[in-house]
Amino acid sequence: MKEKRSSMKRKRLIGNIFSYILLILISLIWLFPFVGLVLNSFRSYKPGVEYGGMVDYLVPKTFSLDSYRFLFSGENNYVQWYLNTIIIAIFTAVLQTMIVLCVSYALSRMRFKGRTLLMRFWLILGMFPGFLTMICLYFLLKQMGLTQAGAIPGLILVYVASSGMGYYVCKGYFDTIPKALDEAARIDGASRARVFLTMTIPMSKPIIIYTALVAFMAPWCDYVFASYIAFGHDSSYNVAVAMQRWVWTGDYQGYFTRFCAGGVLVAIPITILFMLLQNYYVEGVTGGAVKG
């Protein structure tokens, strides 16, 4: 008996050691690109110090902050691009969350004519690829003066306008709040709007944070649409549009380390925000996954 237990113990120990090795390996693989990014960002691009393009070694020969200094040197609009992206992200997050909450509440709690029709119609709309309509959206926005110089409000408008279709996760959450609560309040004379504002919303903190977080993160990655709306107007680019040129365009030779530095500065605040709100994100994603 004793022997059996000890052999099981040993088996478990070996299993655990194996698992740890695996986990450490996984962690290394997952972290490697970020470590690489950070190390590259500390390589100087200045002639005579080091070289700013691609190199075949990882650790810079001399650590320097030149690439970061470049971003704030005024030689480019990095600060402007960064601010643009923050403005877009904040407005999108706030407005999109409001719209999603409204739509979700209406679809979850109210029963009106054409409700299922509307939901099915939106589901079908979602199956069209977004890029298809890029050129059309561009000219629509242009009519309103919201391209190039006005690209920032234009982008916010586009991101927010269609966000109503992304109600699934939030509606799923509302569905889990017992309807009896609503009914009780309504018997006491509260209007729908009152119930929505004073009961449902305060109870939905996790889903609100999740929606806002996802909406906040999306504009940082948008290269395709943002570049299409803002082309030729440097000061209304977002970071993705502006910085991809440093990697893809031949006009910018040896900008790789500066791209890395810019990327690190973008990644830091988002990562911190994400880490702080991680639990809400998990809750939203899991809830959404199960609900479909």
Binding site: V103, A106, W122, T133, A161, S191, A193, R194
Partner: peptide, 26 residues
């Protein structure tokens, strides 16, 4: 509009937005 027809209030803007920026372009 804030009670029995609250759905219309809630959905008006999203539906118009989706129409102009998704349906029409499609």
């Amino acid at each position: 509009l804030f009670d029995s027809n609250f759905d219309k209030t809630l959905l008006a803007l999203p539906v118009i937005g989706i129409f102009v920026f998704t349906v029409l372009p499609i």
